[in-house]
Computed example of a mutant assay.
Amino acid sequence: MRFTPWWSRVMSFLVDYFLVSIPFGVAGLVDPRGTALEVGLGVVTFALLVYNRWYLGGRGQSWGKKLLDTHLHKEAGGRPIGTWMSFVRDVCHLLDALPCFLGFLRPLWDGRRQTFADKIVKTVVTPAETPLPEPLAPNWRAPGRPEGAA
């Protein structure tokens, strides 16, 4: 299995946080005094973070990963990690920052190009062209469930 290069992971991360911070940045430019507009757009920024990093990221591709054509998935089995584990992974990124951001640099020498957070939640990031296991194929259906059943 091929793993995503470090620079691609960094760019994906930066794209994710740049895009979700746009509403809050606009509020700061329009009225820097901390008004209801800033609070409201702060809520929008948080909602975008939840949707992009945790919901879409949990399904395999946040906006940054989609732009850079990469997938986040479980190390074993290749399944998406889900919203909750995507949130847990982001919280675990705090550990990547603790020892002088060493955890964010770890993919440079790690064989599976994982951060400390990836090791903890058992995830990998691969190029989108890497074939994923059969259960992720678009026409996948649960065993015993007839074709076309919901």
Rank of each mutant, 00 (worst) to 15 (best):
G34C: 12
L98P: 00
M85K: 08
Q61R: 10
V44N: 10
E38C: 04
H71V: 11
Q61G: 02
K74G: 10
F116G: 00
L49H: 05
G82D: 05
F3Y: 15
G144L: 14
F13E: 02
E75L: 15
A142W: 09
M85Y: 07
A97K: 13
E147H: 07
G28K: 07
A137E: 11
H93I: 03
W7R: 08
F87H: 03
H71L: 13
R79I: 12
T45M: 08
V125S: 01
V15H: 07
C100V: 15
A117K: 00
E129A: 09
V30I: 15
P80K: 13
F116Y: 08
G58S: 10
L19K: 02
A117F: 01
T123G: 05
S21W: 06
K122G: 05
A117D: 00
F101N: 04
K65H: 07
T123S: 15
M1V: 10
L136R: 04
P127F: 00
W140S: 15
Y17I: 10
R9M: 09
Q114D: 08
L102V: 07
W109R: 07
T115R: 05
V121Y: 01
A137M: 06
S8G: 06
D31K: 13
W6T: 02
G42H: 04
W54T: 00
T115Q: 03
L29I: 11
T130E: 12
E129R: 08
P146E: 08
K66Y: 06
Y51M: 06
A150H: 11
L108I: 10
A149R: 05
G103Y: 00
R145E: 11
A76L: 08
L56D: 00
H73K: 11
D118F: 05
L108S: 12
I22F: 11
A27Y: 02
E38D: 08
G25H: 14
F18P: 02
T126C: 12
T70N: 04
W109V: 09
D69W: 03
L48M: 13
R145L: 15
P5F: 03
G78F: 00
W140A: 13
D118Q: 11
L95Y: 07
A97D: 12
F18V: 14
S12T: 01
G144F: 13
G78Q: 03
T4C: 15
R89P: 06
L41Y: 06
A137T: 15
L56P: 00
H73D: 04
D16E: 02
A149I: 02
R79N: 11
V26Q: 01
T115G: 09
D90V: 04
R9F: 08
P133V: 12
Q114H: 14
L68Q: 00
G57M: 01
G28F: 04
A36V: 13
F18L: 14
R59N: 03
A142H: 04
W6I: 03
Y55T: 09
V39W: 08
N139E: 13
I120L: 08
T126N: 03
V121K: 01
L48N: 03
H73V: 12
G82F: 01
M85Q: 06
G78D: 04
G25R: 09
R53K: 10
P32R: 13
I22P: 06
I120D: 02
P107S: 07
P23K: 01
A47L: 15
P80C: 04
V124F: 01
T130N: 07
V15N: 03
W109Y: 05
